[in-house]
Simulated scan of single mutants.
Amino acid sequence: MVGTRTFGRAGWTVSEIGFGAWAIGGTWGEVSEEDARAALNTALDEGVTFIDTADVYGDGRSEKIIGQVLRERSGDKPLVATKLGRRLDPHEADGYNAKNMEGFVDRSLANLGTERLDLVQLHCPPTEVFYRPEVFGALDDLKSKGKIGEYGVSVEKVEEGLKAIEYPGVVSVQMIYNMFRQRPADLFLPRAKEKGVGVIVRVPLASGLLTGKMSKDSTFADDDHRKFNRAGEAFDVGETFAGVPFDVALDAVDALKEVLPADVPMAQVALRWILMNDGVTVAIPGAKTPDQARSNATAGGLAPLSADAMDAVRDIYETRIAPHVHQRW
Rank of each mutant, 00 (worst) to 15 (best):
T4K: 10
R5Y: 02
R9F: 02
A10H: 00
T13P: 04
V14F: 00
V14R: 00
I17L: 13
G18L: 01
F19S: 03
T27W: 08
T27S: 14
S32A: 11
L40R: 02
A43M: 04
L44A: 04
E46H: 09
F50E: 03
D59Q: 13
G60Q: 00
I65H: 00
I66E: 03
L70C: 10
V80G: 01
A81Q: 14
K83C: 13
D94S: 15
D94W: 13
M101N: 05
E102D: 13
G103A: 12
F104P: 12
V105I: 15
S108E: 01
G113D: 08
R116D: 06
L119H: 06
H123F: 15
P126Q: 09
Y131V: 03
Y131K: 15
V135A: 14
F136N: 12
G137Q: 15
G137S: 14
D140T: 11
D141G: 10
K143T: 15
G149P: 04
E150T: 11
E150I: 03
S154K: 05
E156S: 11
E156K: 08
V158M: 00
E159L: 13
G161T: 05
K163H: 14
P168I: 07
P168M: 14
V171F: 07
V173A: 07
Q174Y: 01
M175S: 09
I176E: 09
I176N: 12
Y177R: 01
Y177K: 02
Q182T: 06
P184F: 01
F188R: 05
F188E: 07
I200C: 10
R202T: 02
L205Q: 02
A206P: 09
S207R: 02
L210K: 01
M214N: 08
K216I: 14
D217L: 07
A221Y: 04
D224F: 01
P245C: 09
D247R: 08
A252Q: 03
V253A: 05
A255Q: 09
L256G: 04
K257V: 09
K257P: 06
V259D: 00
L260V: 14
D263T: 10
M266C: 10
V269W: 08
R272S: 12
W273N: 02
W273F: 15
I274L: 05
A283T: 15
I284A: 04
P285E: 06
A287L: 10
D291P: 06
Q292M: 03
S295Q: 11
P304S: 08
A312L: 08
V313D: 00
R320N: 15
A322E: 01
V325N: 07
H326N: 14
